[in-house]
Nucleic acid binder design. Structure first.
Length: 478
RNA sequence: CGGGGCGUGGCGCAGUUUGGUAGCGCACCUGGUUUGGGACCAGGGGGCCGCAGGUUCGAAUCCUGUCGCCCCGACCA
């Protein structure tokens, strides 16, 4: 049975109400739960297992480029946060303050880190003396707190998990190289592991990070046509170094400021996985990060030999794959729907008929296609199927993005596409922030990025008609 | 922070208009029959009706206040 019948009644169909579909899936698959603190979520085992796999994949990639992990305090003294002007202004409205220790009021308020630039800077100013100390390539896995006005699970919570990399370099060139290198790491990770195609580019002045010289981003497109900033990499130049006095002696015995970068990816990316790949039956997890890659469902498990055979198959496969055997007394139909909803890439059905024929049935979550495979080479068949699903998911996501990407030359055309079709709209821009503001006011769409891959759609700004400088991706965003 | 909606067993809801023994579906537990797309029968456990005041013989229901959550906007990973 491979029709599109809705099997799980509790999930609101995407087409009916996308926001509700999103929260239904999260609740039904137990990725996270609301907590008693507004805007803070309990990440449940299934959700956390996805995060752990994301961590593993990213961490390995970071380390391959020479990055080391550290841990910084979660509190930042107010005076330290104040050091870099743009940075404070950007974050001040959304920081949480600690004012008391026990019953005593603190002499200086402590902010709960919304991000740790200032802490890394202070530390770097203490440990960097010579060009021989450079570069410093640090990363930390932690949570940060931002007092958000409105929140949504994974997409925007008041406390969220992430990694933040902070590097210090001798030269501007080294810093720029690192900034782009890490952007590429993110892009590679998203595309290869998460099967999410991304647009790489630079943020406009208006959209860049507080305190950065340049912000680079990878942007992905959700199923409902809204964009999601999926990872960012910033080049700070020597701005923070000057504010924090991070100086070193170069090989000419001259005092110089370091050049810094920072880059981050958060649990928000789990929201992207849900909204890029999911369908009305539930989650679809890319095999490379799925906590369970294949679930074995025994059929007629009360019958002689079935559970034995299923147990043996489990033992065999668990050497090579993340596999689960569900021998609970739920009906097979229930299990089929359940694991489909949870996005497990492959279901392995094993019943009396199969055992008789020395075979098993592999069913793909991607398209519900079934293949009967011999138990003799099931490892190979499963491995091939997982690879195939990974590729199919990427292709489908790319195709969806392409079909929701338009170009606009006139402003009327631009507005009607944003309003009626949504998605990414490529259009020329004069470089003036006024036009970004006007577009946002007229359409609620924002500039997503100035893509590295430029096209010359026309020579005039789509908004004001003045000479265009860059092609920009525009869209409504999360 | 504006606009809207909602708080009743774990979840989803009915009951509130017109005050009078707290109900339904799912989930959960026990036993049995089932098992290739969310099985069936029987029995069972579980609720300060968000919180605080008030009106009343009597409040889930009426009044006042308060807190929280969700959705839509402005701000943000």
């Amino acid at each position: 049975m491979a029709d599109n019948k809705k099997l799980v009644e509790e999930i609101t169909p995407m087409g009916e109400d996308f926001a509700r579909w999103y929260t239904d899936i999260i609740k039904k698959t137990q990725l996270c739960e609301y907590s008693s603190v507004r805007g803070c979520m309990v990440i449940q085992p299934y959700g956390y297992a996805i995060w752990e796999n994301i961590q593993k994949g990213l961490d390995a990639r970071f380390k391959k480029t020479g990055v080391e992990n550290v841990y910084m305090p979660m509190f930042i003294p107010e005076s330290l946060l104040q050091r870099e002007k743009d940075h404070v202004e950007g974050f001040a409205p959304e920081v949480a303050w600690v004012t008391h220790g026990g019953n005593d009021e603190l002499q200086e308020r402590l902010c709960v880190r919304p991000t740790s630039e200032t802490l890394f800077c202070e530390h770097y100013s203490n440990i960097i003396r010579s060009y021989r100390d450079l570069p410093k390539l640090y990363n930390q896995w932690c949570s940060v707190v931002r007092w958000e006005k409105t929140t949504r699970p994974f997409l925007r919570s008041m406390e969220f998990l992430w990694q933040e990399g902070h590097t210090a370099h001798a030269t501007a060139e080294d810093a720029q190289e690192r900034t782009i290198q890490m952007l590429n790491v993110y892009a590679d990770f998203c595309e290869k592991e998460l099967a999410i195609p991304v647009i790489k580019g630079q943020k406009t002045e208006k959209e860049k990070f507080a305190g950065a010289n340049e912000t680079y981003t990878i942007e992905s497109l959700m199923h409902d046509g809204k964009a999601l900033q999926s990872g960012t990499s910033h080049n700070f130049g020597d701005g923070f170094a000057k504010a924090f006095g991070i100086q070193y002696l170069n090989d000419n015995n001259e005092l110089a400021y370091v050049h810094q970068t920072s880059w981050g990816m958060s649990t928000r990316i789990i929201g992207a996985i849900i909204m890029v790949h999911g369908d009305d039956a539930g989650l679809k997890l890319p095999p490379r990060i799925a906590p369970t890659q294949a679930v074995i469902v025994p059929i007629a498990q009360h019958k002689e030999g079935v559970l034995d055979a299923a147990g043996k198959l489990y033992e065999r496969l668990s050497d090579k794959f993340r596999v689960k055997l569900d021998d609970s007394d739920k009906s097979p139909g229930w299990k089929f729907s359940e694991y489909e909803m949870r996005g497990v890439p492959v279901r392995i059905e094993l019943g009396p008929k199969d055992i008789e024929k020395n075979q098993a049935v592999l069913v793909s979550r991607f398209d519900r296609s079934k293949t009967f495979v011999s138990l003799d080479n099931i490892e190979e068949e499963l491995s091939n199927l997982l690879d195939k699903i990974q590729q199919q998911m990427y292709d489908a996501a790319l195709q969806n993005r392409e079909s929701k990407t338009s170009s606009a030359v006139s402003y009327d055309e631009f507005k009607s596409i944003i309003e009626e079709k949504g998605g990414f709209v490529k259009a020329m821009w004069c470089g003036d922030e006024e036009c970004e503001n006007k577009i946002k006011e007229d359409t609620t769409a924002t500039s997503r990025c100035i893509p590295f891959e430029q096209e010359e759609l026309s020579d005039k700004c789509v908004c004001c008609g003045k000479p265009a400088k860059k092609m920009v991706y525009w869209g409504k965003a999360y």
